[in-house]
């Protein structure tokens, strides 16, 4: 495909991403915000697919746009879908205005520092970028991993790196998922018992009467 067309389509996707991100942050209806976030993840997956990161793209489509959205929806079904927009008291209004101002200052300063940092970055797609040409990592994986005489075997280099060269990373990831699952189960059981106790306390006086 014509490189200019590739750039235009990618830029269009990036513009859609920025729009979806802003919409997701601004929407007062949490259900809408979560749906927009799902769309954001999906557009991100399309962009990664176009950048030839197919493994990452389908993981994002399944996990980022799928499981994350389901988790958020499940949480919203328990806590209600509407964000309170108007501050309740004068004091909390002052506090939220201060928080907004502080957040803008922090964001501008951070963005400035990061933009300054990009000065030394190679351009996107530069074939002579250090990350791409380092002989010990990317070049080694691409030239030595695949094939019957290769160090690992599978033709997909991402599979080889994930399951062999960096298998300890993957083991650590599994530990993280296990721990997170454990935390979620414990927290939700606790929340359930708290809710039950609350209901008992609220119903208490009526029972006594």
């Amino acid at each position: 495909m014509d490189p200019l067309l590739v750039t235009i389509v990618n830029d269009l996707l990036l513009a859609i991403l920025v729009g979806l991100a802003i919409a997701s942050v601004r929407l007062p209806d949490l259900l809408g915000a979560v749906a927009t976030l799902g769309a954001y993840s999906l557009v991100m997956a399309i962009l990664w697919c176009r950048m030839n990161a197919v493994d990452v793209a389908f993981t994002e489509a399944a996990v980022g746009a799928g499981i994350s959205t389901v988790l958020l929806l499940a949480a919203i079904s328990r806590i209600g879908r509407h964000e309170r927009r108007t501050p309740r008291t004068v004091a909390s209004r002052g506090r939220s205005q201060l928080a907004r101002f502080g957040a803008i200052v922090v964001c501008v300063v951070t963005a400035g520092a990061l933009l300054y940092g990009t000065k030394d970055m190679p351009r996107v797609g530069d074939p002579s970028a250090p990350a791409t040409t380092h002989p010990g990592v990317a070049v080694h994986y691409l030239t030595k991993s695949a094939g019957p005489e290769g160090e690992v075997g599978p033709p997909n280099v991402v599979t080889s790196v994930l399951g062999d060269y960096r298998s300890y990373d993957t083991l650590g990831e599994t530990v993280v998922i296990f721990t997170a699952g454990l935390c979620v189960v414990l927290l939700l059981r606790q929340a359930q018992s708290v809710r039950r106790r609350r209901r008992a306390v609220e119903a208490g006086p009526e029972l006594q009467r």
Binding site: V56, A131, V161, L162, E173, V184, L188
Partner: peptide, 28 residues
């Protein structure tokens, strides 16, 4: 370059774990 792809695969899954724990805390 396959290396960033692998690193981000791991990060996506860890990110979802963070989201799950955070949402459980919010429900709590």
């Amino acid at each position: 370059n396959p290396l960033p792809h692998v690193l981000m695969l791991t990060a996506i899954v860890v990110g979802v774990s963070v989201t799950a724990v955070a949402l459980a805390l919010i429900v709590r």
